Simulated assay, not measured.
Amino acid sequence: MIVRIVKMGFYKQNIDAFLDNFHDTKGDIRAFEGCSYLELYRDKTNPSVFFTYSYWESEEHLEQYRKSELFKKVWSRVKPLFSIRPEAWSVEKIETLK
């Protein structure tokens, strides 16, 4: 399993557009083959910074998403809204405590 974390910062005037786009596409992203989990977080100290957190069955599934028309559609809408360069990490979950 791959955990994908993406950090995005937006101009204040673009936050609502980002949230609208996320609301419109989150179901499609979550339903994409290989995606088993999707969350959106907002930074507590800087409300213009957001993080997505998703689980992918494999690196191949994540790459299929990144090459998909859905990703191109989502990214083309979000990219012009950024105030900072987005950062992304693919990490391996080692342990979960509940």
Rank of each mutant, 00 (worst) to 15 (best):
D20L: 13
E60F: 05
V91Q: 10
E87Q: 10
P86M: 03
V91I: 09
H23C: 07
I29T: 13
A31F: 00
M8K: 06
H23I: 12
S83F: 01
R66D: 05
R42A: 03
E95A: 15
G27F: 10
H23A: 14
T45R: 04
Y65H: 09
M1C: 07
G34R: 13
T45E: 09
Y41R: 04
E59A: 05
Y55D: 07
P86Y: 01
Q64R: 13
F71I: 00
V3I: 11
G9S: 15
P80C: 02
K7A: 12
E33R: 02
V3F: 11
E39T: 11
L40D: 06
S76V: 00
L62W: 07
I84C: 06
I2S: 09
I29K: 04
K26V: 15
R42G: 04
V74S: 00
K7Y: 08
L19R: 10
V3N: 09
E59R: 05
F50E: 00
Y53L: 15
E95N: 11
E63Y: 10
Y53V: 01
H61G: 11
V91F: 01
F71A: 00
F10Q: 14
V6E: 12
G34A: 11
E69P: 13
K93Y: 08
I15V: 14
N21L: 13
I29F: 15
W75K: 13
Y37I: 03
W75S: 14
F82D: 01
S68I: 12
D24S: 09
W89R: 07
S48R: 10
L81D: 01
E33I: 11
Y55R: 03
T45A: 06
S90V: 06
T96E: 10
C35A: 12
L19N: 12
L97N: 06
Y53Q: 08
M8E: 01
A88T: 04
N21G: 14
E57H: 12
L19D: 00
S48N: 08
Y11E: 05
I29M: 10
I15D: 02
Q64T: 08
R30G: 03
P86L: 01
T45D: 08
E63D: 07
R30C: 05
E33C: 02
K7E: 15
F82S: 09
H61T: 13
E33M: 11
W89P: 00
D16G: 04
F51E: 08
R4E: 14
Y41A: 06
G9Y: 00
S76I: 00
G9N: 15
E59L: 14
T52C: 03
E60C: 11
K7H: 01
Y41Q: 13
E59P: 13
L81H: 07
F10V: 07
V6Y: 02
W75P: 00
T96I: 07
F10N: 04
G27P: 03
T25S: 03
M8P: 03
L62T: 04
K79Q: 13
L62V: 07
A31L: 09
S90A: 14
Y53R: 06
E60W: 01
S90N: 14
S76H: 00
R85T: 11
T96R: 15
Q13H: 05
E39S: 05
D43H: 06
Q13W: 15
K12Y: 09
T25Q: 04
K79W: 00
G9L: 10
M8Q: 08
R30Q: 09
S90G: 05
K12R: 10
Y55S: 11
E87A: 07
G9M: 13
D20E: 14
N21P: 03
D16T: 08
Y55E: 05
E95H: 11
Y11A: 06
K98D: 12
E69Q: 06
